[in-house]
């Protein structure tokens, strides 16, 4: 019992996730339904895939405000590159070519952020704030403010496809998302790179003294985040069969909100992939459930903002209580 209590006290996001699931199951018609849960996973996947990389970067003690813009750029590349002359004779395989171009673009932009953070020593917030403005400019210059549509319907078919698993037809994107959660979780908890991620964020000086190459390490995490953001751009554009220059606006805020809901510390050194997943899932469930209850979409903003601040207050209360407890034991 005590174990349960301390688990939920330390990781309140799980309690929150369960609470809202129960709430909407009781009060929102059609919420408690396999089909709907699949929808929620798809809705969560775009933000979720980015959040995986964002968690790594934030545990490093950095941040990335440019993910929304990078997502838009990669989506645009994904859609546009299918009709590039170099892929012309590939037929349907042009989609694969474009896919690689999009991921590459994401890694290049993420890598650029990481490289600047590494080499200039400028605060990551500022570096990526600049990138956020600049890359969005790049998207507009590239598209000339036009939306792009995929000519090959196979592209959107892939986005809508599902994989039969026993009696269920699970959407491909949902499966991709879950597999990525598992992979990045293993990366963070089981590999040397993952453990170093905590060291670099928790005590940079100690990491440097221990011979961890802090700069390249951060660079790699930005590269991973860029690649994952590119992937999110691909899945999002394939669901829509199109890319718009304004795609992904505000996504950085939602992603950071989800990761912080999951308990990752802005100062670095603390966080977990599974909890970030729970944070993003909470946001998706809130949006979905409120939609089911016919609540105007506007209220979601207010509720999310409120929850974000509430989590912060809760966290503060809990940690100060912990201190008091340890003083009194």
């Amino acid at each position: 019992m005590d174990k349960f209590k301390s688990f939920f006290l330390e990781q309140p996001i799980w309690a929150f996730l369960i609470a809202i699931t129960v709430f909407f199951s009781l009060f929102a018609p059609n919420f408690f339904d396999i089909q709907n849960f699949e929808n929620i996973l798809i809705q969560a996947s775009t933000l979720g895939i980015i959040a995986l990389g964002m968690t790594l970067v934030m545990i490093n003690g950095n941040i990335d405000l440019s993910v929304g813009a990078i997502l838009a750029f990669c989506a645009v590349v994904m859609v546009d590159a299918q009709s590039w002359p170099i892929f012309a004779q590939l037929g349907d395989w042009a989609i694969l070519g474009a896919f690689f171009m999009a991921i590459l673009a994401g890694m290049a932009l993420g890598g650029l952020n990481g490289f600047l953070v590494w080499k200039t020593g400028v605060n990551a917030f500022i570096v990526t704030l600049g990138a956020m403005i600049g890359i969005r400019g790049l998207v507009f210059v590239y598209t000339q403010e036009q939306s792009l549509f995929a000519m090959n319907f196979l592209f959107s078919d892939i986005g809508m496809s599902s994989v039969p698993l026993g009696p269920l037809a699970v959407p491909t994107i949902a499966i991709l998302f879950l597999v990525l959660v598992a992979l990045v979780h293993l990366l963070l908890t089981r590999t040397v790179h993952g453990r170093n991620t905590f060291a670099v964020g928790g005590n940079p000086e100690a990491a440097v003294n221990a011979g961890i190459r802090v700069g390249p390490h951060m660079f790699v995490n930005y590269l991973i985040l860029g690649g994952l953001t590119g992937l999110a751009g691909v899945t999002l554009s394939s669901q829509m069969g199109a890319a718009t220059p304004n795609l992904g606006r505000d996504y950085e805020l939602w992603v950071i909100t989800g990761v912080v809901l999951g308990g990752t510390k802005l100062a670095g050194g603390y966080g977990s992939i599974l909890r970030s997943f729970a944070g993003i899932l909470s946001i998706a469930i809130l949006r979905n459930g409120m939609n089911m209850m016919q609540v105007q979409a506007f209220y979601v903003y207010v509720i999310l903002g409120g929850i974000l601040i509430a989590v912060l207050i809760l966290d503060k209360q809990l940690s100060s209580r912990k201190v008091r407890l340890s003083e009194q034991v």
Binding site: N196, A199, G202, N203, A206, A207, A210, G211, G269
Partner: peptide, 20 residues
């Protein structure tokens, strides 16, 4: 002290040289 608070004792002992 130059330790990483949220890593284990063992990980701190071999910080930068974790066996692979």
């Amino acid at each position: 002290l130059s330790l990483v608070e949220d890593l284990s004792v063992a990980e701190n002992l071999f910080l930068g040289e974790l066996p692979r």
